[in-house]
Design a protein around this nucleic acid. Structure first.
Lengths: 132, 132
DNA sequence: TATACTGTTTATATCTATATACACAGTATA
DNA sequence: TATACTGTGTATATAGATATAAACAGTATA
């Protein structure tokens, strides 16, 4: 399984955290049903061109959070996450992201109207690219 | 001068970087005109309850970026940043923030319509709080 | 039972944040 | 004007987080 993960290597947020968030999103969104085998830490680290230890850490944190299960020698698999938790993950992550972006815009002296304008522009550009 | 800076200490982005971004925003937004004395690294570190070295690092990076000027014994002052650069800082920061939030929402399987809904909700909440 | 695949542990380097001690510049005042 | 005092930025040493490479150990299967 090839995970659709995109990393910002020059971002200030740790790589392992970026992986965690995106895997959570895939599980919460239903793209990765319970029991699905995840790529091995080696395969993923090769795919993302990062160290094995970094993917290992991301997987460890995801396991502690109850999102995946790993067993030595076998591999790593998506855990059985309840629908309510999935929904909670989705809603809170999206809300926080958008709230944060609006706060950033306000700090840059943008009015709510101007923010809405930029927002619509971003949407328009994404629609150009054929995003759903 | 008491800088209106808010830190997320549990955030994954380094403190010095949060300070840089917010000071840049204040300069680009015109709240801090050229020549304005910034708080000393000690005063700011005490205000934000962080180490002197961390504020020092933020100021150093801001100086390298041409946003402020520091002279030993005197203090730190806002540099004369051109209007075009100020505008560029504002636009790119806001655009990136909003673009990033939309990408996060898309990763969580949100449609553009749903994203717009959340966005409007965030705006509405902020208006409740009396934000401009 | 080889072999090739898993995850795991150990040791190392770099980045982030801190505490502490130091050197420089301005200002009051004896 | 000498001197002490206050405020400024600067340098060094230390602890923890982040990322890496290399060696170790369990599991499946040809």
């Amino acid at each position: 399984m090839q995970l659709p993960i995109r990393l910002s290597k020059d971002s200030k947020t740790p790589i392992y955290h970026q992986i965690e968030e995106q895997v959570k999103a895939l599980i919460a969104g239903g793209q990765l049903p319970a029991g699905t085998p995840l790529p091995s830490i080696r395969a993923l680290s090769k795919d993302l061109e990062i160290s094995v230890i970094t993917t290992r850490r991301a997987y460890l944190n995801l396991e502690h959070g109850g999102f995946i299960q790993t067993s030595q020698g076998k591999g790593t698999f998506v855990a059985d996450v309840s629908a309510s938790i999935k929904e909670e993950v989705k809603v809170s992550a999206v809300y926080k992201a958008i709230e944060n972006s609006v706060e950033t815009a306000l700090r840059h002296d943008y009015t709510l109207e101007q923010i809405e304008e930029v927002f619509k522009e971003v949407i328009a550009v994404l629609k150009e690219k054929g995003v759903s």
